[in-house]
């Protein structure tokens, strides 16, 4: 997998420096190619550099981050936008989601946890590639077989050895496959799709947290809550309530 090219947009130099130097881009197969301090600069940089990932602050001079995304979206549909904002406000979040951003993280940024965000981003890029490719070609590829199998067996105990047995492959090889095809390790991928399923269930069903945890392959809901909190920044019940409250407010 080729290195992902990253553009940092924030009007505060310290925030950009922090991102550049405190997060291990190398380990995540990424490279920061440029920086921008305002909306116009960001727009120009996106056009000329065509980065894979744009880390974007909302509250920046001249043109706000959401506007930049809106304008760049059409020209560069393949670019992933990650919003980093101090505005702990769901209205921004809602607008950002409408622009189909890849992720929304809040300042202060915990650089250790930022890795999970990059992993999620890679997974969604992978899924976009899969969706874009011709279906008959997909069938032949091992990785798509494995991801399909994972989706179907999320509630069960899955490990590399289970996959190895199922697909008659070496566990080491499967691990390598994840790294090369998607760019993340197996466990990060599994956690990601489990959390995606959990979010879907939290918002679309009224199942209890314990039941959702079970359906997503967590026998112990305490572990589930902990993992959910770490990746989503809120506990499952908070997540569900925030959504309900927000849609309730929008309906009013």
């Amino acid at each position: 997998m080729k290195k992902l090219r990253v553009l940092l947009v924030d009007d505060e130099i310290m925030i950009r420096e922090g991102f550049k130097r405190l997060f291990d881009w190398e380990a995540h197969d990424c490279a920061v190619v440029s920086e921008a301090a305002d909306g116009m600069e960001a727009l120009a940089q996106i056009d000329t550099l065509r980065p894979d990932i744009v880390i974007m602050d909302i509250n920046i001079p001249i043109m706000n981050g959401l506007k930049v995304i809106q304008l760049s979206r059409i020209k560069h549909p393949g670019t992933a936008f990650v919003i980093v904002s101090g505005y702990d406000d769901f209205s921004y979040c809602r607008e950002a989601l409408r622009l189909q951003i890849t992720d929304y993280i809040l300042k202060p940024v915990n650089y250790e946890e930022f890795g999970a965000c990059i992993d999620n981003l890679k997974i969604s890029l992978f899924e976009r590639r899969v969706a874009a490719a011709a279906p008959e070609k997909q069938e032949e590829r091992t990785i798509s077989g494995i991801t399909k199998f994972l989706q179907a067996h999320l509630a069960e105990e899955i490990s590399l050895s289970v996959l190895a047995e199922q697909f008659h492959l070496n566990p080491q090889y499967i691990s390598q496959l994840f790294k090369s095809e998607i760019g993340v390790n197996f466990l990060a991928y599994l956690t990601n799709i489990r959390m995606e399923k959990a979010k879907k269930l939290l918002l679309s069903t009224s199942l209890s947290i314990t039941e959702i945890a079970q359906q997503c392959g967590y026998g112990d809901y305490r572990v589930f809550t902990k993992v959910f909190k770490k990746t989503e920044g809120s506990t499952p019940s908070q997540y569900r309530r925030d959504f309900l409250e927000d849609t309730g407010a929008a309906a009013r």
């Binding site: 310290m14 420096e17 922090g18 130097r21 405190l22 101090g86 202060p108």
Partner: peptide, 16 residues
């Protein structure tokens, strides 16, 4: 916002 944005800047400087 002023308060915790400033604190965040200090935090990043400390970590740098």
């Amino acid at each position: 916002h002023f308060l915790y944005n400033t604190l965040d800047t200090i935090r990043i400087q400390a970590q740098l």
